[in-house]
Design a binder for these strands. Sequence first.
DNA 1: ACGGATATCGTGATCGGAACGACAAATCCG
DNA 2: CGGATTTGTCGTTCCGATCACGATATCCGT
Lengths: 391, 391
Amino acid sequence: MADRAMSVEGVRRRNLGEVLRLVHEEGAQSRARITASTGLNRSTVADLVAALAEAGLVEEREPDQTKRVGRPSPIVASSDDVVAIAVNPEVDALEVGAIALSGAVRARVREEADRLLTPEETAAAVARIVEGWRGRELAGKRIVGLGAAVPGLVRAADGVVRLAPHLRWREAAVGELLHEATGLRVAVGNDASLGARAEHLFGAAEGHENAVYLNGGASGIGGGLILDGRPIGGAGGYAGEWGQNRPGIPDDADRRAPDGALEDEVSRARLLHALGLVSADDPTLAAALAASTSAAVADEVERQRRILATALANAVNVLNPSVIVLGGFLGMLVAADADGFDAAVRAHALSAPAEGLVIRPAALAEDRLLIGAAEAAFAPLLADPLADPPA
Amino acid sequence: MADRAMSVEGVRRRNLGEVLRLVHEEGAQSRARITASTGLNRSTVADLVAALAEAGLVEEREPDQTKRVGRPSPIVASSDDVVAIAVNPEVDALEVGAIALSGAVRARVREEADRLLTPEETAAAVARIVEGWRGRELAGKRIVGLGAAVPGLVRAADGVVRLAPHLRWREAAVGELLHEATGLRVAVGNDASLGARAEHLFGAAEGHENAVYLNGGASGIGGGLILDGRPIGGAGGYAGEWGQNRPGIPDDADRRAPDGALEDEVSRARLLHALGLVSADDPTLAAALAASTSAAVADEVERQRRILATALANAVNVLNPSVIVLGGFLGMLVAADADGFDAAVRAHALSAPAEGLVIRPAALAEDRLLIGAAEAAFAPLLADPLADPPA
DNA sequence: ACGGATATCGTGATCGGAACGACAAATCCG
DNA sequence: CGGATTTGTCGTTCCGATCACGATATCCGT
């Protein structure tokens, strides 16, 4: 019922987590700065840092050369030797990475596949890759967990993928399979939700407590939500499925699919079709869009922008975010005329919730999902750094 | 930056608040039950309860007659003598109440007005009413704060009403005015957001951590959001403005207002018009709807239900709530055929986020806004019960 | 070059709050 | 009436945060 009550030991857990989170998310910094940020006592911070260093989670370095008065404060950096495995199964490939607590990508592999992998095959492949790393790239490293970013509906609580249409996965206990294959603690999440988390921590939504993230890919539109500084999952962890929403389309002439969802109207495929392309990766698509002089293409872009702007205005009214981050082809739609798009969103939103709103393209590139997945894997460690000993 | 770090005293504050919150929200209960709910030690709970009793915030009663073995545990009840003032300015009246921590309504007054009151006049009237109560109904009571539920856009941080069209208030420092007039600590919030809070704590969304609340009134549609058990305000506290959203209207024949907002299409006024009524209060409207045999009325109800169902399905996809609570005439729209409406929402939502979803009418009657406003006023007390002494 | 000012760190004493153990009290049951 | 059960109470223990003091390192003006 109430996990909100605290014990004295709980304080230590929480403060250890807070210090670790600080150096993890905001980079190496002096003890003095940690003291200021946390509001804790100097000696307390010293003690906490010592405990984290003892556990191998952070390292203390000699102070940097500063031009400032006073005794220099040692720099605390999150460890390079503590890593999380990040997994991202895609339609045509399986991507696996090893990301250190410091943020460094220690290893990374993308295995192309000519057919869809089953959840079981995916788990086996991940286990094989991680096992290969253990003796080499990750020798001597401590692997604290595994995070998987899956394009589909994921029940975050137990890592069951309810439905991932493009992978043809259905009611797949991916979390359990990965755990059994690797022995690691596993967190599974929706790809867009984890992307939102990554953009919030290190990308375009950094520093914003209330962010809406929408990503447009070949398979549709997914999204993630950060409210009050926390990732929002909803009751089952399925939140963020903007793509299947029925969009408000003020002018019926803009409608292409009868009773269509947002991702039927605002779609990468329609853009490609207007451009006369069959398929293209994101850079190619962006270049083609920028180069196009066709009126039909311009019309299609404008049409999609109108519908997207209305959908975002609805989100602004309801959620009052301080930033909207757009990834994939949604970022391209906006880029053509960012100010015009901004104005279009504001035109359909109430003025107060739109105050101070910024709309910007996603900042993290192809690392986004791996970072988000790794963050999900790091979460238990940050919540209770000394819970599981260095094995 | 990081208010997340805790000190040892913070533990006490938090645990005191947790115990007080428990008896406030879940009613009088035995110490034993508090011990079980919080996970704290028996002696700790005894100590906390004693501190709260000392401050006059709770009272200990003789144990109830139980049929169980073992020593009976004393009942802890939140005090009747600690009250908050709740204010709800409406178009045609000013409603003020005094609600005790125990939930009891100690006093209540509704002053009809034949014209709109300015913020200054409202503050003066509230001060006059509260002053009148001080010697009588509230003699010997401790007033811990004042909460105001305003129908409009409210910046929660400082209590400035940015825009309340129906009251004709604009950029009004209502929080400041009320504080100066009464000397009380003031919290101002949007009426629907506070209604959501009330329904979450004591009404139809009780026990749900993720709730969407929509209220339909004469002035439009407002809403509130509870996610992860917490009221969601967004960056400026304006979140929840569903009424101004552009709704998805699959069949253009259903559209009545070109480029209209949700509250232009799903509207109390249109219902009244279809019924041939000029004005009516909610019970009258409900009765008229139930009694009507007109096909035109049925068509209009069905049309509004279709649009509302689509809007709610979007909310389900994006927020994955476990309950949707509908107040005002929205509740009536659903009541006609609750199962059919449920099915309509599910038809347009993804199946996973709609699992376990319940859609129900609001449970609290005319007390809803006063309770919500009082809760807002109680919030600081619950966060730190012993912060401000009994004066 | 040197001492004072400034700022930080380390250490040991102290404080505060929750947990724990032992015992007493209150109730039910046979 | 005595055993079983549950809970309150009191004293003690444990542990983390804080405070105060001295030590240390850098900067800056003379």
